[in-house]
Design a protein around this nucleic acid. Structure first.
Lengths: 168, 168
DNA sequence: TATTGTTATACTCTATAACTATA
DNA sequence: TATAGTTATAGAGTATAACAATA
């Protein structure tokens, strides 16, 4: 129960008419509207959902993009290292990788010297899917940059990096 | 499976030593580091978790803050209107309100003219809890503002609002 | 003893649909 | 018929703990 953009159709219950017949209820959001934290949350939710929609157009989701990209950039990475890069427990990776391997996007190979670990790499199909998702990401970035403004972009990202570094 | 800050101790599996004995694995994040959407996500996750920690110090969480604030700012609001203000389905509100009523922070009163709806308002204890959470939020805002810089703050929020409005 | 990856299990947050009581 | 709120149920996404295989 947290203020964000609605995830789907919840913004308006489709099975229910607007009781006011068009006159939207005048909700008072109080001091929230001026708070940085609140606006950061709302903007991130909007941005994330916009990227989710683009990802869905190629039949994937943002989580798969992150996984594929990290494997592509770090070929031979182990599952434990990948889960750490993602900031998630290794157990959460098992079903994700199971899906990616089943769909032929990722290959796992046992290592010779340490037979406990797998080396992960993308298949050609995986690279192709990643390329499609990277295209989505670039389109998304262009949309964001248009809203931010070319002159402000660098400063904007610098502030975001500062927040991540100092508040983490 | 999405790149954010880890939710808790997952950043380092406590039951496992660092296999490299201190030499952190050099993960390559590729083009991610320069993308606005990624930095927005990371910054929001950090900010949200910082506020979560402050909320926990007064025994609450960010979701309760949103609910209490919206009720306080809109006394007499119905559950359906509150769920819409939150962007969530009304069914998700039932257990939340059950908890707040049980703890004596919120009062529900049947309306006279329409006996289907409840009117929600905070009890004095609810207002007191909200005041504590508002204190957390103000401390959090001060921390953010310090990172953003007084001169940039207005522009930064304006950009966030633009992203929310245009990408929603 | 320690680590890798898997499994079992549970918790949180969310949604949809069906229900009840009222309108 | 339509709406307010509840209940039942399910699906992501996450975590912890215990396990088998291997080091």
């Amino acid at each position: 129960m947290i203020l964000t953009r609605p995830k789907s159709s919840a913004r308006r219950d489709k099975r229910t008419k607007n009781p006011a017949g068009g006159a939207a209820a005048p909700i008072n959001f109080g001091p929230l509207a001026d708070w940085t934290g609140f606006n950061l949350r709302m903007a991130q939710a909007s941005s994330f959902q916009a990227f989710s929609r683009l990802s869905q157009e190629v039949g994937e989701n943002p989580g798969r993009f992150a996984t594929l990209l990290l494997i592509s950039e770090n070929p031979g990475i182990s599952q434990t290292m990948l889960s750490r890069a993602n900031g998630r427990d290794k157990s959460t990776l098992t079903p994700v990788l199971e899906d990616l391997v089943r769909r032929g996007l990722v290959k796992r190979r046992r290592t010779h010297n340490d037979r406990r670990t797998y080396r992960l790499k993308l298949t050609p199909a995986g690279e192709k899917t990643l390329a499609k998702l990277t295209g989505c990401a670039r389109r998304h970035e262009r949309n964001l940059d248009r809203l931010i403004g070319a002159r402000e972009r660098k400063k904007f990202i610098a502030i975001l990096k500062r927040i991540t570094a100092e508040l983490g």
